[in-house]
Design a protein around this nucleic acid. Sequence first.
DNA 1: TGCGAACCATGACCGTCGTCACATTCTGGA
DNA 2: TCCAGAATGTGACGACGGTCATGGTTCGCA
Lengths: 257, 257
Amino acid sequence: MTVVTFWSRRPAAKVGSGYNDPVNSALERPSPRTVLASSTLLGSLAPEQIDALLEHSRLAQAGRGEVIWMDGSEASYLGIVGTGFVKMVRSSAGGQELTAEIMGPGQSFGLLGAIEGTGCPLSARAVSAVWYLRVPKTDFLALYGGNLPLRDHLIRRTTLRLRGAIDMMSRMASGRVEHRIAAVLIQLAESYGVEEADGAMRLEVPLSRQDLAELAGTTVETTIRITSRWTKQGVLKAQYRSLTIQNLGRLLEILGD
Amino acid sequence: MTVVTFWSRRPAAKVGSGYNDPVNSALERPSPRTVLASSTLLGSLAPEQIDALLEHSRLAQAGRGEVIWMDGSEASYLGIVGTGFVKMVRSSAGGQELTAEIMGPGQSFGLLGAIEGTGCPLSARAVSAVWYLRVPKTDFLALYGGNLPLRDHLIRRTTLRLRGAIDMMSRMASGRVEHRIAAVLIQLAESYGVEEADGAMRLEVPLSRQDLAELAGTTVETTIRITSRWTKQGVLKAQYRSLTIQNLGRLLEILGD
DNA sequence: TGCGAACCATGACCGTCGTCACATTCTGGA
DNA sequence: TCCAGAATGTGACGACGGTCATGGTTCGCA
């Protein structure tokens, strides 16, 4: 699971529709079938069901920072990430943004909105350049109606998300920003950490300090202060839009106080 | 729904096992059948299913502050509130407590733990003197397995809870304690507000300032300061373990900033 | 290679709110 | 009726962290 939950205090970053031209993106376009097969939710369907879904599904792309859909709006499809990363954002009154989850390859987004008729409660925004598959709601619902295992999978998934949200909140319970950032980093490491040669954990999500701040519910400045301090202490290697955890144990200590 | 979500900063209040003798409680003991019939989750089952559930279900009571079960522990039953109120609490490292939900008459608690094998992620604690029905997990699961409408109901309920949790978090997004308390009060009013003769909204949950603080994720002192100020301004009538909202519009204004 | 924009970094200032300390009011039970 | 303990209230103080201001660094693109 990838429930990395919290809020932010800053006005929304400007929408990047095209400011990082996706056409020239270095990422290769995956095939729709590959994306669907890699999906944790739909990857294990029967071949004929996959074919049925693929018929109306279309691959799409988004550049870094680009909005895939706004919250409240009635998206007619759900998305499955092929390559890159998408963040699910809740913008509240006052222009603040709350990043609720970060979805990586193989993960699907927009499910809540798809199952109920209602619009998705979260906006989707690309963290990096993204290729994703648009699966029409109607096709998905047709499949979902008569598919008990899929239903059960979904119940489990939703309860896990709820549990994760509660869990994260409790870890965020301390008002200390330092704790919250530590909690976010640990969560990210669990989901997207890749072991380096020297034993460090690199996060394969290209997060800026601003992104991290939105996840931890604080400001860029404070986030920078803390990550810089940790870098000096050898806990973290904070580079340009990139984070590597060098001392996970220390982060856990900080959490426990 | 009753998702009133947040955290606290204070060590757990002392466990009140019996300090408010439940035997002498003014509340009358309801009949198990009444409780089950009033349940939003199970109230609409077929008569024979109700009978089956009642066979092994037992009524239980808890005094104000008493712990019904600890989180993590393997509860063998789920609870349905008959009279009184129960809060679902997550205690995190450092002795802080996070009140995630407040459940009133007709609402069930411990579902997440019942459906998956795992223990419930939240502790249950009585806010006031409570009568509740203990429905054995095994009986519930037997019913649940072959009951599609129940399953669907549960999916909807869980997605609603998730949605509510996200919603609450975004309303809490502002760091201002004042906003958080306003958000909590509004949420409580939606669920448990009763219209008074003079148009004010009395919360039928007997919450102390400490309880309110745990819901808003702050300290008693700050909570008292704010509620006192609001009382002077005529927004709120804050009495002993009792809250009445006199100017809901003003609270909404505070939320919107 | 150079330019502009985003990103990272650091310092100063100050409001909010947590902490401690103590006074006052309310309540339930003996 | 009285009393202990809980609940409410208020003040002082200081730290955490948000805000503003300013400058250095990295990246993408021409």
